[in-house]
């Protein structure tokens, strides 16, 4: 992973309307967040990093040249933030090693490029999913109940809950994959 200070591809002469920032950011935040999550899969850390990235982009929005790829710029900024995080938390056990970071970096953008197809397929898979599974995903992700909380609510071990959630995710990925294969989408 190359450590370079992020610069937009624009010349910075033309001031962009900062009102545009929100719409550009919203339409690209999933790409940027996905990129961060690949390197920093801890959700809480990833959210922090996302905020830092957004904040930096906001402050330096002048550097962005309208019409260029905002998502790519965001990913570049995020990459810089990720490296900074890794450098300042040398002892963190939650940090992927440098060689693994390079491996992820080599594949990350390609994965991002195909993400929209996967999410399209994911929507179809979710709509075909049985109600129990969807309910669990809903409580976990939309209502934000932690696995510990969910497990506590039903007096079940957390371990069992993770197994269940892992099965659901596996099922979803399998479904997404089948749909992509069948549609030859990429």
């Amino acid at each position: 992973m190359n450590e370079k200070y992020p610069q937009s591809s624009g010349n910075g002469c033309e001031k962009s309307n900062k009102d545009d920032f929100i719409s550009l950011f919203l339409s690209n935040q999933r790409r940027i967040f996905t990129f961060i999550l690949m390197f920093v899969p801890n959700r809480s850390d990833a959210e922090d990093l996302m905020q830092e990235t957004a904040s930096w982009m906001w402050k330096n929005f002048d550097e962005y040249k309208p019409g260029t790829n905002f998502g790519a710029w965001g990913v570049q900024v995020a990459r810089y933030k990720i490296l900074k995080l890794h450098n300042r938390t040398q002892s963190s056990r939650l940090k992927f090693g440098g060689d693994l970071v390079d491996l992820i970096d080599a594949k990350a953008e390609h994965t991002l490029d195909s993400a929209s197809y996967k999410i399209h397929a994911l929507r179809k898979c979710l709509s075909g999913m049985n109600e129990q599974n969807r309910r669990l995903l809903y409580l976990r992700y939309e209502e934000g109940l932690t696995p510990q909380k969910l497990a506590q609510m039903v007096d079940r071990p957390v371990h069992g809950l993770y197994k269940t959630m892992a099965r659901i995710h596996k099922m979803l990925l399998r479904c997404v994959r089948q749909k992509l294969i069948a549609e030859g989408d990429e």
Binding site: R30, F33, T34, L37, M38, P41, I104, K107, A108, T111, L112, A115, K118, I119, L122, H169, L172, L173, V176, R177
Partner: peptide
Amino acid sequence: LDFVTLCAA
């Protein structure tokens, strides 16, 4: 990477 992509979504 696919897993994380779906989780992010």
